[in-house]
């Protein structure tokens, strides 16, 4: 049974580490969460990005945020990756497995996964 006492324990554990975790977050991962995105499966994609960024220790490097309709509903779930000094990368028709690969190869490794991008989808 989950209890508020456990939340207290989380607080005590994290209080000291929070300051260390606040990085500049040079990379922004933006997931479209309007009706079109949600209906197409954006919720598990978002949650996978949040989990993977945490698991791969990228919290200081990348932040995951949500946005509304990006305007290309037929390509949902859409994820945009913004990085200082680089072109925006737009990933389309995402799912959890693709999200894991994007975190490993693009966010961590610095190499965008071109086969999932909108440029490839439109070929």
């Amino acid at each position: 049974m989950k209890s508020l006492a456990e939340l207290q324990a989380i607080r005590d554990r994290m209080k000291n580490s929070v300051a260390l975790r606040e990085g500049t977050g040079d990379i922004r991962i933006v997931v479209g969460m309007a009706t079109c995105g949600i209906a197409a499966g954006a919720r598990p994609v978002l949650n996978t990005f949040v989990e993977e960024v945490e698991k791969q220790n990228l919290v200081g490097k990348a932040t995951v945020t949500q946005t509304g309709c990006i305007g290309m509903c037929r390509f949902e779930p859409i994820v945009e990756v913004f990085e200082e000094g680089k072109d925006r990368v737009t990933y389309v028709k995402m799912d959890s497995e693709k999200a894991k690969r994007v975190v490993a190869e693009h966010i961590k490794g610095g190499r965008p996964v071109y086969e999932y991008t909108i440029g490839e989808a439109q070929k």
């Binding site: 939340l7 989380i10 607080r11 209080k15 989990e51 945490e54 919290v59």
Partner: peptide
């Protein structure tokens, strides 16, 4: 109230809880 200002609600361990 429990977490105070130090630990945001979107902290991964809070979300897992």
């Amino acid at each position: 109230e429990i977490l105070g200002e130090d630990v945001p609600l979107d902290s991964p361990s809070v979300l897992m809880w």
